[in-house]
Structures are given as structure tokens and as C-alpha cells.
Design a protein around this nucleic acid. Structure first.
Length: 559
RNA sequence: UGGGGUGUAGCCAAGCGGUAAGGCAGCGGGUUUUGAUCCCGCCAUUCGCAGGUUCGAAUCCUGCCACCCCAGCCA
């Protein structure tokens, strides 16, 4: 495992692993991350990946990356490619342990035959609807299928003919013979195999019967020698079935299943039901849409794998349903990017400033540090001239108390440059402010001026008009207007935040930013962390995504 | 009205019979040419509720309440 995995605390699963190792129950821990290749990995999977690969790394064990490909009608190669890319982007290495449930199809088939021989499974001719009726309800027991006592030889024959392709989909199903009156619905003779005359992305047309999750998953775990099979809470009810299967079969290992609660992130959705619905009707831009909590979307948005791993370590692992606030994720992202992102200046909503006492046609070059706490990141040159642009929000004609940016007659420091004073506000016929006419104090040049140390209340960012690089910047906000958009019966799509994406096409950047390579991170001073978009950005024509804004106690104080 | 789980601060989460860690958020202050960062300080007399056991209970017992999951030939 290549990731630094000192992120997690001592959760209940790690306690169990530590105990099992200490007691000698297991010599080495073996885990697995078993996604079905029917969709993209999201932040919830990241929690599971960090847990499974993290435990293996911390305890000197192994973790398999196993594609749970038992349903050919839903799975695609494109998803497995994206899954592998996502896991390794997150920073984990499965080494030679990339497996598939389909690797074990023959063994699973043999297990099914063994079950039939032992009188523990039967071929049922009931239709899907009949099976549902026979199953009973939560409060009433089910009834035995008329086929339940079919002789072993007949079951063997039918199952062989199912495999041979003699029957259409749905004609027969292989069921475990357990207890139709069990209060646990999963034990009411669950289906083990169904007929699916579909071509599988790995095994092609070799099979037309496919194992169900519970059967395939249990056997895969046992064959791989998984010691701790970690899954989410909704599988807690399946554990008795998992154990029943292990009890009936002669398998090389006896894994145990443990369940933890899945991650919910406020103001977004992660379920396989909801995420695809957002893509298809064009609500967001595609598979790696930066606003979606998917691994590749988060990468495009500019979240770092380090930040995500840190996040997964901080949320903990318990059995209590968790709804994590976005602020925790954002805090992890800021903490990482604060360290690694060089600083730069960009104006997202430009307001022109003319320095009336600065010589016409004169230009000079200032020097700016790339990082206030990391001098090893060096510095860059910053052109300065008579005409500049500042952020429109950094000027107010009639400011409230404690506004220490620019105001009529007021002074402000231009970051890395001079102190200026606003002398005149120029407006158009509609009364919109179109330009500020200011004077600069030539003695206050940053670093070298005679009055370089003179203090003023505020410092603002700026770009020189003559050297500005025009660029598109995309600002993101929460995708939904409610914490739990997928809760309840309502249509979650009606709760989309119409302001979740704002494209600013006329932003002005300092020239050093023009050369940004896709994926490069910067802190735009006083604004936030930004990344050059890995799809649309090109050197000379950059496009930036706002990863996350800086903490802003001024905005907070003002509500 | 069946079965399986879970309740510690706004959100997470330690705690494992000896008197409520930590993080995020929030609040107050210091440093600051980023209202950032950084640094300090504050933030649960109480652990879903009610009883009980004990010198002592978030931890043990009993009862109750709330919430989540389960009736796919999905995973």
C-alpha cells in the first residue's frame, strides 16, 4: 500500500482485528474491497477503500480489489476501468490481488452442486411473482414451494440443464433450503442462482446462470482467505445467510463479516439510484462532473487524494448512521491545499482602477513570494502599471463599520505593491461604478519603499491591466438546497441548487497563471483554492475550478 | 403487530465501573502586506427517557421512547 495510512483512529473494527491478531486467531489480516462494476466510485466508497486497504496496511496484511461481477446485465468494462483508476488515484495499491467474482464461477457452481447433493438446495419452478407471494411478509411466515421437496437427482438434472442453456430467463431458479418461516427474510429459501442469458464482460457466453450476491460473495471471501469481511449496515441481516453458506460448504477459510454505517454527506447524494439520474437528464456535465461526490468528479474539482484520505480517517467508523457536514470535508481540503498550493492573484469580478499620479506608459516589475510559510517555493514577478483591476467587492461607496477595504477617500494596500487612495468614483449614465481614480504613494513599494512598512487597515489583491490574462473560472456551491435531498418520497431533483455552478468568463489573472498545467493547484489570494481544469484548461488559455473558498470571517460576521 | 441495528454537544467521535478525550462548526483574543494561515482561550455538572444495582454508572440490570435497515431471480 502506498498511501500514508496513519489517518485512522482505533475504531471497533480495528479493535477486533488487533484482538484477532493478538490472540492468534489469524496470523495475518486479509481484507477486500468488492465493488460491483455497475457505476462509478463515490465518496462513500472512499470510506470503505480507506478502511479495507488501510487496515491491511496498518496491520501488515493484504487487501484484495475484487470486482463483484455477478450480474452481466448491469456491469460494464468502462466501470471497471474507472474503479481501478479511482482506487489508485486515492493512493492504494492492490498489487497482484486484483480479482473478480467471475474468477470463481466454476468453484461456485461446484458449491451449488454440493449443496444440492446435501439436500440443502433445490431448483424451483415458481415464477418471480409466485416466489414473492410465497415469501410471506415481515409479520407473516412464508409457505414452502411445491418444488421444495424435489428429489436430489431431479435437482441435479435440472440444474445441469439450467447451466446448459435449456431454459429461458426466469424459468427456474436455484434456492437454498433453509426456513420459509424465518423472521429473517433472507433465510426464507433465498435464490442462489438465476438464469441470465446475457453475455458477461469477462466470461462472455460461457455461462447463462449467474450466482446471487450472497452466494458469490461468501464463497469469494472464503476462497481468498479473507479474515474480516467488512461491509455496510444494510448487510447485517445477511450475516446469518453468510454463515449458513459457510456452514454447509467445505471451504478453505472461515471469514467473519462485520458491518459499519455508510457515509452520508450533507447537501449531496451518493446512492446508485440517485447519482445516475443526475447525469442522464443533463443536470450536471458528465461522468466526472466536479459537483458530484464521485471520486473522479472530486479529482476534477481539485480535491486531493491526501485530503480525501484524511477525511475518511476523521469521520470514524461506527454503526451509527452518520450525516457528515460538508465543512469537515472542506476543512480537510483546505488543510492540505494550504500547504501545497502556491499563491497567486486573480480578479474574478474586475473593477478598473487608474492611478492618476503614476506616469503614463510606465511599467515596473514587483516580486511576490509564492508561499508565505514556504520560502522554498520561491517567488515570481508581478507586472505593475498605471491601470489595474481590483475585485469589485473590495470597494464600497458607503461601507459599513469595520469594512477595511477601499472606500472614497480611503487607503488600502495593494498586495506586494503600493498603498493607494481612492480620489474619485466614476459612474456611467445608469449610476454603475465603472472606474476608480486613485493616487498611489510611491514611497510604500513593498519591500523597498522608504515607507514600505507603513500600515493601513486593508490589503487587497489586483492585476495589472496591461499584463492580465483573461480566463474562465468556475465557482461551485452545494448541489442541493437541503441536507438530505434523497430522504423521503419527494423528487430530489426538484431540490437542486440552481446556483451550484457559476461560470465567470471574464476573470483576469496575473500573467504567471497563464502557464498553469491542468491539475495545478493555486491559492488565489483572499479568494480560495483553485485548480486548472484537467479537461478544459490549456496553457495560454486556462480554465480554473474553485476547489473551496478560503475561510471568510468577514463574510460570516456580516451574515 | 416479525426480525436485525443504533442513540454521548450543531455534525462526527473517544469512552470498556473510578467521576465526559479529540476533530469539524461556533464564539472571544493575539500575530499577520491574504478579513487566509498560525497561536491562545471558551464551548456536555451530563451521556435518548425512567427506574434499579453499587461507596461510585455514559459504562451493569429492567422497562420505555425515538430513529435506521429487511418482503430483488440487485449488490
Amino acid at each position: 500500500m502506498t498511501a500514508d495510512t496513519d489517518i485512522a483512529g482505533h475504531d471497533f473494527i480495528r479493535q477486533i482485528v488487533a484482538d484477532d491478531l493478538a490472540s492468534g486467531r489469524h496470523a495475518r489480516v486479509v481484507t477486500r474491497f468488492p465493488p460491483e462494476p455497475n457505476g462509478f466510485l463515490h465518496v462513500g466508497h472512499a470510506k470503505s477503500i480507506c478502511l479495507n486497504f488501510g487496515i491491511a496496511a496498518e496491520f501488515g496484511g493484504l487487501c484484495y480489489l475484487r470486482l463483484d461481477d455477478t450480474n452481466p446485465v448491469k456491469e460494464e468494462q468502462a466501470y471497471v476501468d474507472a474503479i481501478l483508476e479511482g482506487v489508485s488515484w486515492l493512493g492504494f495499491d492492490w498489487g497482484p490481488r486484483l480479482t473478480h467474482a467471475s474468477d470463481y464461477f466454476e468453484a461456485m457452481h461446484d458449491c451449488a452442486v454440493a449443496l444440492i447433493r446435501a439436500g440443502k438446495a433445490y431448483v424451483d419452478g415458481l415464477s418471480a411473482e409466485q416466489i414473492r407471494e410465497y415469501r410471506g411478509t415481515l409479520t407473516e411466515p412464508g409457505r414452502n414451494s411445491p418444488d421444495r421437496e424435489r428429489p436430489v437427482e431431479e435437482n441435479l438434472d435440472l440444474f445441469a440443464r439450467m447451466r446448459a442453456g435449456e431454459f429461458p430467463d426466469g424459468r427456474y431458479v436455484l434456492r437454498a433450503k433453509i426456513d420459509m418461516a424465518s423472521p429473517n427474510m433472507n433465510l426464507r429459501d433465498p435464490a442462489l442462482y438465476r438464469i441470465r442469458r446475457a453475455s458477461h464482460q469477462r466470461t462472455g457466453d460461457a455461462w447463462c446462470i449467474y450466482p446471487m450476491y450472497d452466494f458469490a460473495h461468501t464463497i469469494s471471501d472464503a476462497l481468498e482467505g479473507i479474515t474480516h469481511s467488512i461491509c455496510t449496515l444494510e448487510f447485517e441481516d445477511h450475516r446469518p445467510l453468510y454463515e449458513w453458506i459457510l456452514d454447509q460448504l467445505e471451504l478453505p477459510a472461515r471469514p467473519r463479516q462485520y458491518e459499519f454505517s455508510r457515509l452520508n454527506l450533507a447537501y449531496t447524494v451518493t446512492s446508485k439510484r440517485t447519482l445516475p439520474e443526475l447525469i442522464e437528464p443533463g443536470h450536471v456535465s458528465g461522468g466526472d462532473a466536479p459537483r458530484l461526490p464521485r471520486l473522479l468528479g472530486m479529482r476534477r474539482r481539485g480535491y486531493s487524494p491526501e485530503a480525501l484520505r484524511d477525511f475518511c480517517g476523521r469521520i470514524g467508523v461506527t454503526k451509527k448512521e452518520q450525516l457528515i457536514e460538508m465543512s469537515l470535508l472542506e476543512s480537510c481540503v483546505r488543510e492540505d491545499l494550504n500547504q501545497r498550493a502556491p499563491r497567486a492573484m486573480a480578479v474574478l469580478d474586475p473593477l478598473k482602477v487608474v492611478l492618476t499620479n503614476y506616469p503614463e506608459g510606465q511599467v515596473e516589475t514587483l516580486v511576490a513570494a509564492n508561499h508565505p510559510e514556504r520560502p522554498e517555493l520561491g517567488s515570481r514577478e508581478l507586472p505593475f502599471g498605471r491601470e489595474l483591476y481590483i475585485e469589485r467587492a473590495d470597494f464600497m461607496e458607503d461601507p459599513p463599520k469595520k469594512f477595511f477595504r477601499l472606500r472614497p477617500g480611503g487607503e488600502v494596500r495593494l498586495r506586494f505593491a503600493y498603498i493607494i487612495r481612492c480620489e474619485e468614483v466614476v459612474k456611467d449614465a445608469q449610476g454603475n461604478i465603472v472606474e476608480l481614480r486613485c493616487t498611489y504613494d510611491a514611497d510604500t513599494r513593498s519591500g523597498s519603499g522608504a515607507s514600505a512598512e507603513r500600515k493601513v487597515k486593508g490589503t487587497i489583491h489586483w492585476v495589472a491591466a496591461h499584463a492580465a490574462q483573461r480566463a474562465e473560472v468556475r465557482l461551485y456551491d452545494r448541489l442541493f438546497t437541503e441536507e438530505r435531498p434523497d430522504a423521503g418520497e419527494r423528487d430530489f431533483k426538484a431540490l437542486l441548487n440552481p446556483a451550484s455552478l457559476e461560470r465567470r468568463e471574464a476573470c483576469l489573472l496575473e500573467p504567471a497563471l497563464a502557464a498553469a498545467a491542468p491539475g495545478d493547484w493555486f491559492q488565489f489570494e483572499r479568494l480560495g483554492y483553485f485548480v486548472a481544469d484537467r479537461v478544459d484548461s490549456r496553457p495560454g488559455q486556462p480554465v480554473f475550478n474553485r476547489v473551496v473558498g478560503l475561510r471568510d470571517s468577514w463574510a460570516r460576521a456580516r451574515g
